[in-house]
Design a protein around this nucleic acid. Structure first.
Lengths: 129, 129
DNA sequence: CTTTACACTCCACTTACTGGAGAGTTTACA
DNA sequence: TGTAAACTCTCCAGTAAGTGGAGTGTAAAG
């Protein structure tokens, strides 16, 4: 299939699919006459896999690792689980950080009158190092 | 003061401070003999301000806006509050997304034995589009 | 037969830095 | 006074993961 269809079926943009092909994440055949990429069902499956993994915050690098585990029939689920657990703890750290950030910002916003006068606890807090 | 001291006092790296100077976020004087940047106390205050605002997830662009509000004695706190509230709602959206992500990943991890056999619900889920 | 939709390559740009090469400057110590 | 370490400079390139656009070629529909 052409890139447009592959993109649609994997919920990616054409640009992104082309980019993935450029960096070798998927390897569609090329029509030597037209230069058009030809995506097989297997290529599509890989694109769909990557699209989902990216949504799960796996990096391209990790997607490559997952893809190779995925295509290796002898892969152990141990490695995949380890990668996933690592992702979870990264997310936990990010959550804590964001919650803290939100807390501080909302405290500042609450104490800011938001009128036309220059007193502003938000700026005061930012400049209070 | 030299860049090293300015960096230390603002908890930024020398590279980052130089970068901020390059993009005009701060404007230290330059010793025309040595080419060394000379940071005033005011420059330092700006760096500290930016360092903190960046921690609060304000982009460089927003830092510039904040800095100009900050240095403008006639600024209203209305604008600052609006920017802050916008940030909070961005953070909220991010929190929801991350929580959902974590939920899905931990469900997958829980159902993965993590042994040496190839069955792996994580990979199955990723390939199940 | 022409218009429209789709495809291609190549280059530049994005964010917010980071790393390194190669060179000059300042400071500390023997 | 010499020299070595520590600091500074500029410039170039790279990072992640694409996005945007120019200019051009191809395919399908009316």
């Amino acid at each position: 299939m052409n890139i447009g269809k592959a993109a649609k079926l994997s919920n990616l943009t054409v640009k992104t699919v082309r980019y993935y092909a450029d960096i070798g994440l998927v390897k569609p055949l090329k029509n030597s006459n037209t230069g058009y990429r030809d995506f097989s069902d297997d290529d599509l499956a890989q694109l769909q896999f990557v699209a989902k993994a990216r949504k799960f915050n796996f990096s391209i690098q990790e997607c490559e690792e997952l893809l190779s585990l995925y295509s290796d029939k002898n892969r152990s689920s141990k490695e995949v689980k380890a990668l996933t657990l690592e992702k979870i703890s990264e997310i936990d750290a990010k959550l804590i950080e964001l919650k803290d950030l939100r807390h501080q910002l909302s405290f500042l916003a609450k104490n800011c009158k938001g009128d036309d006068r220059p007193e502003c606890p938000i700026l005061d807090a930012l400049s209070d190092v």
